[in-house]
Amino acid sequence: MKILIIGSKKNNTTDYFYYNLLKEKGYNIKIFESHDIFNEFYYRNIFNKILFRLKLSNIYYKINVALKKIALNDYDIIWIFKGMEIYPSTISYLKNKTTAKIVNYNGDHPYIYESRGFGNKNVLNSIKLYDLHLSYSKEIQKNLINKFNVQCKWLPFGYEWSKVNQVYHDKKIGCFIGNPDNNRAQIIRQLTNNGIMMHLYGNNWIKHIKENKFIKIFPAVHNEEYLSTAQKYRFQLNIFRNQNKDSHNMRTFEMPAFGCISLNPYSKEQTSFFEENIECFYYNDNNDLISKAKHIINLSEEEAYKIKQNAYNKSISSNYKYSDRINILESYFNEII
């Protein structure tokens, strides 16, 4: 099977996880870094940002011209991740000029966008053109099928790597690792206003929340530092964006794979992965969040460490790793070619 991925070649992107895993399995696979090309242009200087926002830039046009040339190379699958840079007309062109099946995977919501970076008219207007959609969310899968009459399969998130948590004497503090927005800041204030200490790691938190005796802010952490930071706290807070409601997100799998206690928003889909009170905790509203956080903080070190080990063991025994997701993906691709 010959596959062309359209997306990003940056580390820690889902695109690149799948690219490397498919390559390791021996597939003839290439990646066209449409997203990286756009970001390199957009973030180069303020002038480029202004040009793009005023619709005076031709960066999308250049990306689409390049893609049309690259794609004419007898691929079986052309797999587009989100597709903000790809014109609907380009997808139609590829369907007419190649025999490849065109597949879309969107790690956000395909037609409801919280902000500029979550989607655009290219994503929305291309929905009906794909031979197959892949979604992490069963709810989004159902909505795509019913609203747009397209073929859609469920492909949950996963984790890239795991490590046993050997930190027995943890900090009895909650932690959130990620960048801020108003909703995240509001939820964290619910905890700190009720006496629960939180440590926040990410960029620009100081613009959204002030430090006090219950809130400490630290720079962003990545790779090994991300893992070691996560493991030393009593719990890791998970906060859904709107598109994750009734579903799950990447952190659903990341933190248990590090042997961390996750405090997650409740969803039926998420409870199918990890058992409540045994492998993680779920909250339904602000009052429940505060109650569960206090309960986790008050666990003995032995009780907390047991839950961390349960979470880790469930992760590695349940085929939640991205390398396990490849088996699901292969079956979907084989159905359409």
Rank of each mutant, 00 (worst) to 15 (best):
G7W: 01
S8D: 00
N11D: 13
T13F: 06
Y18S: 10
N20S: 09
I29Y: 01
F38I: 13
I50Y: 06
L51V: 10
K55G: 08
L56Y: 08
I63S: 07
I63P: 03
N64E: 09
I70Q: 04
I70K: 06
A71E: 01
D74S: 12
Y75N: 01
Y75V: 01
D76H: 02
I78L: 11
K82N: 11
G83M: 08
I86P: 04
S89A: 14
S89N: 13
G107T: 10
G107E: 04
H109W: 02
Y111V: 12
S115A: 13
S126R: 00
I127A: 06
K128W: 02
L132C: 11
E139P: 01
E139M: 10
E139I: 14
F148M: 12
Q151P: 00
L155C: 12
N165W: 04
H169G: 04
I173M: 04
C175Y: 04
R184D: 06
I187Q: 01
Q190G: 07
N193G: 02
N193I: 03
N203S: 07
N203M: 07
K210M: 07
E211T: 14
K216R: 12
K216G: 00
N223S: 14
N223G: 09
N223I: 12
N223F: 13
L227C: 14
R234N: 07
R234M: 05
N249A: 11
M250F: 08
P256K: 02
L263K: 00
N264W: 01
E269D: 15
F274R: 05
Y283E: 02
Y283S: 02
N286K: 08
N286W: 02
I290G: 11
A293I: 13
H295M: 11
N298F: 03
E301A: 05
E301D: 11
E302D: 11
E303T: 09
A304Q: 03
Y305P: 00
K306L: 11
I307Q: 05
Q309F: 00
Q309Y: 00
N310L: 04
Y320T: 12
Y320F: 15
I326W: 03
I328Q: 12
E330Y: 04
E330C: 09
